[in-house]
Design a protein around this nucleic acid. Structure first.
Lengths: 147, 147
DNA sequence: CCCAAATCCTAGATAGTCGGTCGGATTTGT
DNA sequence: ACAAATCCGACCGACTATCTAGGATTTGGG
């Protein structure tokens, strides 16, 4: 019961993109080196994010990727589901045959379902924009303290 | 991002125990056959539940296991953590060395932490008693319809 | 006192997933 | 033409999840 590093890498990459003032695309190599993420691995996650419509990517020299929407319009939930598949998917057991009504399995399915609703509700309410601004606050405060 | 079958089996076993009118212990074999769960596997989960203090077990002939507390006093969260370890544990990355303040990792840690709080909050609010009574309602309704 | 029934403990076996690497094909600006 | 970048798919080692198995230990009943 934990999130994968794929999603962590993906989120960090998107935060990096959101923090970028310029709207020019940044290449995977640069994000990877700045965030200290294995380059070829991050490449794959970026491809997944593109297929999910969260980033645009430009091939060839001078290419790279950029956010497909405003950071405030990309939720953490979308990122997770793009990289890890459905949050808490339950391949429901009671297909066709078994009578669900008197089975304890069904009650537990409902429990999982409600857990999913709770978690997705929260994750869907946080955006990349939120994360980026939180991180900036942190960085600023860190600066103030240390100077 | 999903729960294991260990926890599903554990929950079903506990619901079975809670549904039992008599307070006499039931053996793992019987629970397993009634719930259609691999017997030797369920045995192991019951042992874990005992170590977590959720069930009592009696060895020897005529032995078995029974709930250690009232069904309303056992939360789903406890069961999950007994069988699967901490829900969404994050072995925090920023131990000692790295400066957390300006790292995006820290923002994400906080995101995971808040997700954990949300999920644990819900799971801690549902008890075995709740699940057992929900299941009975289902069974009763099913009966009414089919008769 | 012995036996059968039950839990307990430990060690696998097997299959799948996760994190990561790699070779190379393709696109594209200079 | 060349270098920089994405894209595609295969592969790999390590780990985990599910389940099986052997046997030690406890315990009530005849």
């Amino acid at each position: 019961m934990k999130f994968s590093v794929k999603t962590e890498y993906g989120l960090r990459a998107l935060i990096e993109l959101a923090s970028q003032a310029t709207r020019k695309p940044i290449c995977a190599r640069e994000i990877a080196s700045r965030q200290d993420i294995p380059e070829r691995f991050l490449e794959q996650q970026i491809t997944s994010l593109r297929k999910a419509g969260l980033v645009n990517s430009q091939r060839g020299a001078g290419g790279g990727c950029s956010l497909a929407r405003a950071p405030e319009a990309i939720t953490v939930l979308e990122v997770i589901e793009a990289l890890d598949g459905p949050v808490m998917n339950m391949d429901c057991i009671s297909q066709s045959g078994s009578d669900c009504r008197q089975s304890t399995q069904c009650v537990i399915q409902e429990l999982w379902l409600e857990s999913q609703v709770q978690l997705r509700g929260y994750l869907g309410s946080v955006t990349i924009g939120d994360l980026a601004s939180r991180q900036h606050e942190k960085a600023d405060r860190g600066l103030t303290y240390t100077i």
